[in-house]
Design a protein around this nucleic acid. Structure first.
Lengths: 159, 159
DNA sequence: CGAACAGACGCAACTCGATTGCAAAACAAT
DNA sequence: ATTGTTTTGCAATCGAGTTGCGTCTGTTCG
């Protein structure tokens, strides 16, 4: 589940030798730490939105629970990651592609709560707001059943 | 904030004499209790999505915290109410109009987290899902600032 | 290279919506 | 009124997420 392990410890290494994750982090100007690299790599490797639990499990060991929370928070503030509220009161995170600036679509399974990103946003959707309200962005969430939950007896478990 | 108080205690009263709330509940075939009537009336009177806290405060007194949770849960199962996940990890509830069957739009303020319903859904929006996935409905959430948070210095407080 | 500083980390305690178990009370049918 | 379910109230519990604080680490500057 983890991406190519980062060999990057030296400081004056060629740019193309550091992982995409490390480059992204370095570009922000903030500190490049193991935690940030690891978490970001996990997010990049996952094809779907991950919960804090899943991420913590994926980086298994070196990182504290709280650190993972803080890294995710930082990634979100830095707009590198997306924070998605789910129907189970659990945050899920994905790497934020550059295309999906303000319009973004997600799918959430009503059975297992899993979330994936839908890239082809039909968008051009601009609901009318009451006077005085300002729109910043629109989020589209499709509810339904994921592949795993359609066929067999749905697994009701959290994910 | 509360709707017309329900005078309905007698059992063989004319239909048009009981509140809309009571009729709705009676129509489900389930028991008609004070709690359900009160909570539903509060929801009907509110022009926006309410948190459990707000609802509890509105029915002030007679109802236990847990009962409010259970009533809201029942209303949601009965499809009389909508349960909306917010960006502050707090559920919000609204009466579910009959029109908005599967397409529904909400507005959530990025500053105060308040949620209102957007009735005129432009919809006819049908994002392409991966093979094997089944869509049940689409939810559209507009992020932005509400009237109260646009003008003055935004109140960061929860709501 | 090494010191110095700000920022990140680990640990433990804490917050607070929301949920659960169980006995008492309320509703609805007889 | 009597009986069989449902609901309710209360207390305890859960768990994702947050906070305080001392220590450690990346980064900068001499």
């Amino acid at each position: 589940m983890r991406a190519a392990s980062s060999e990057s410890r030296r400081s004056s290494i060629a740019v193309d030798a550091m992982s995409a994750a490390e480059q992204l982090i370095r570009a922000t100007g903030a500190r490049v730490t193991q935690g940030r690299i690891l978490v970001l790599e996990v997010l990049q490797a996952a094809g779907r939105a991950l919960t804090h639990h899943e991420i913590e499990a994926a980086v298994a060991g070196p990182l504290d629970r709280v650190t993972v929370y803080r890294v995710l928070d930082w990634l979100t503030r830095e707009q590198i990651a997306h924070k998605i509220p789910g129907d189970d009161r659990v945050w899920r995170f994905t790497i934020a592609g550059q295309k999906q600036a303000h319009h973004h679509a997600h799918f959430q399974c009503t059975d297992c709560s899993q979330v994936i990103c839908l890239d082809d946003v039909p968008s051009t959707l601009r609901p009318r707001l009451p006077a005085g309200y300002r729109s910043v962005g629109v989020e589209v969430t499709v509810k339904g059943q994921c592949k795993a939950c359609v066929r067999p007896a749905p697994r009701r478990g959290r994910r």
